[in-house]
Amino acid sequence: MGDFQKIDTWQGLFLLFIFLVLMYFLLNALKFALERFGAKNKTNKALRISLQKFKLLFVPIASVLLLLDFISINYVPHTLILILICVFCYPTIKNYVSGIVFKINPLTTLNATIKIGNQRGEIKKMLPLGLVVNTKNGEQFINYTKVEEKGFLIHSKENNLFRQTLYVESEFDSNYILDVLFDNPIINYKEPPIIKKQENSKVLKLQYTLEKGANNKDIVSYLKTLNITTNSNKITN
């Protein structure tokens, strides 16, 4: 019981801070390891996405834990100090929280095309307090509060010039094809491949992005070795 009470001290607050910082670095190291050394498949991608979301939530959760410990050291004065800070910093705090909600959205990724009010461009950076969007007028910084007030629309990446399209005819289902694609290192798994079934047809429409320097012929040859027929033009049955 005595050890537990030591948390309500400046030393306990410092130790909690050190522990949380180490946890944050551990999350970053795990994320780096998954991106650098993990298998390029759907399971790994789902794990990385979940880890990224948890990392986004970790900072506010850690902050709340530190604030609660800070209050417990001396309830009345420390509570008053925090109330004053919240009053004066409310716009910044609101903006930061809006940013977390924005970044958790699976559609909001780097290089995605976004429309905010009358502004449209590609997301180049997602900073703690705002976005850097590359518009026709150059790079614009837009804070998350403004994004929340005006609303936003994410446009599909399917029309991206770097997005490749192949039509696939195979006895294998779409899940199998996606799995074998994730095993190929020339596929850019940060913009994962998408397979859509064509209406009234067994033909699948495959859209994907290659790593820089990769050749589209390589992926065609790779699929051919797996007895998966592809065509750059739409196949008609």
Rank of each mutant, 00 (worst) to 15 (best):
G2C: 00
Q5M: 03
D8T: 04
T9P: 04
Q11W: 02
I18Y: 06
L20I: 08
F25A: 05
L26K: 09
N28S: 12
A29L: 15
K31Q: 13
F32Q: 13
A33W: 15
R36F: 13
F37A: 10
G38E: 11
G38K: 13
K42S: 15
K42H: 05
K45T: 04
A46W: 03
Q52R: 08
F54S: 12
K55V: 01
I61E: 01
A62E: 03
S63H: 06
V64A: 08
I73P: 02
I73A: 06
I73M: 05
Y75A: 02
Y75W: 10
H78E: 00
T79D: 05
T79V: 12
T79G: 01
L80F: 10
I83K: 07
I85P: 02
I85N: 00
Y90M: 14
I93T: 08
S98H: 14
G99N: 00
V101C: 13
F102S: 06
I104C: 05
N105M: 09
T113S: 05
K115G: 01
G117D: 15
N118G: 11
I123R: 00
M126C: 12
P128L: 05
L131G: 00
V132E: 14
I142Q: 07
V147N: 03
I154E: 11
N159V: 07
N160E: 12
L161S: 03
L166I: 00
Y167T: 03
V168M: 07
V168R: 00
S170W: 02
I177R: 05
V180C: 07
D183R: 09
N184G: 04
N184E: 11
P192E: 12
P193R: 02
I195L: 13
I195T: 12
I195G: 02
K196R: 14
Q198H: 02
Q198V: 05
N200A: 14
N200T: 03
S201L: 01
V203N: 11
Q207E: 14
L210H: 11
E211L: 14
E211K: 15
G213L: 05
N216H: 09
K217H: 10
D218Y: 06
Y222Q: 03
N227Q: 02
I228A: 05
T229V: 10
S232E: 04
N233Y: 10
K234E: 13
I235L: 15
N237P: 15
